[in-house]
Design a protein around this nucleic acid. Sequence first.
DNA 1: GAGTGGTCTAGACCACTCA
DNA 2: GAGTGGTCTAGACCACTCC
Lengths: 233, 233
Amino acid sequence: MKRVLRSSYRTIRDELLRRISTRVWKPGELIPGEEALAEEFGAARATVNRALQELARTGVVERRRKAGTRVVLHPVREARFVIPLVRQAIEEEGKTYRYRLVASRGERVPGDVAASLGISAGLPLMHVRAMHYADDRPYQFEDRWINLEAVPAARTAPFDVQSPNEWLVENAPFSRATFSFLADRAREEEAVLLELREGDPVLVGERITFLVDRPITFVRLVHPPSHRMVSEL
Amino acid sequence: MKRVLRSSYRTIRDELLRRISTRVWKPGELIPGEEALAEEFGAARATVNRALQELARTGVVERRRKAGTRVVLHPVREARFVIPLVRQAIEEEGKTYRYRLVASRGERVPGDVAASLGISAGLPLMHVRAMHYADDRPYQFEDRWINLEAVPAARTAPFDVQSPNEWLVENAPFSRATFSFLADRAREEEAVLLELREGDPVLVGERITFLVDRPITFVRLVHPPSHRMVSEL
DNA sequence: GAGTGGTCTAGACCACTCA
DNA sequence: GAGTGGTCTAGACCACTCC
């Protein structure tokens, strides 16, 4: 009987995944080497390698030279959340996006923000606060500090018509970023702008970006409690 | 002069990334084809291909056959959050993990949970509630529903000594999952168990898992407001 | 030292999509 | 139809790590 099945790295990957998820190969177990699999599937070793690398990247198997490839014992799942521009996120939901600047001025940076950025407290940074609306309902409050030493042009940027988010994307590249998410109480100003009561729970995203260890910006993104961050895998 | 630089796909990838982040190639711009880059770097096309594929995977460039490779216009950043077992997360912080079962019994599933799972309300599911502590301080409340049709063994599983989280990892493979995160008010039971006041903000993760479209489990994971989900990129 | 995965090459054919 | 990326092969050498 002639081999009719076309072997692509996807086919191989999916078949390996099937064997793992149906416990043909159990957690912690060693699976056959690349050479053996290549022969079984009638493919080149490079093709099997690509399939296995993809499984390793998604955390399904662990690979070590000489030791071989094992099914991961505790599948450390990871969720990927897309962090789009607010405008995109809103328009993709089929809603109308609106932007409004609340305030924009140079200010001495408070201690907690300075600490997050790794700079001295009291330095003059650009402090921009703005609202993003979806269908005229409050969607996100953006409270941002921009390091003027790294991005001097921010002092005169047109934040009245363009959100700092979008302006920075186009004018200040970054190489590294940290995100974190937490539940917090709405502060007084946030509550007013988001049309909540002070102390209501809000979903807060904090992002800090760097260009090669030079801090660019710190932002606190505040969402009303109806907001959800969703991810599929 | 002899070419001394060793070309690996990493070197190529990093150089391409440098050109993009320093705006040598600007957003929306077409970059040279694989063949041209292969010649420039003195590498095989396959090597350049690997570098470009990686950049495409992380959302830095977009590739289309015939059209070529472009620098992405609005870099849709994505953040990856690792979702480890609670035990692992706590122990990696150098703290002591403790588990306590609150209740475990068959119950008719309420409408909202049934809707999330895509099953009929009122079906008997396994309802397990449990606490996870770090250094004896409340870390996470796990409120879980398990589909007994998909995982009948859950009825007699030893949830008094093993968390449903860990038991399911070892006994019920899944192929698809959805996560979402939101800020919510602590419900009465949650407040008591997490040592908060009712209505305090809590960070809630909801996860639903499927084995090929068959719903396995729905879980609500509730964290005190001090909790942060962190991601780096 | 030896076994396994990591990477590279040169060439080939295919698949998609733009014009 | 033609150009570009997608994938595969066969072979090779290297790098790491276990014994």
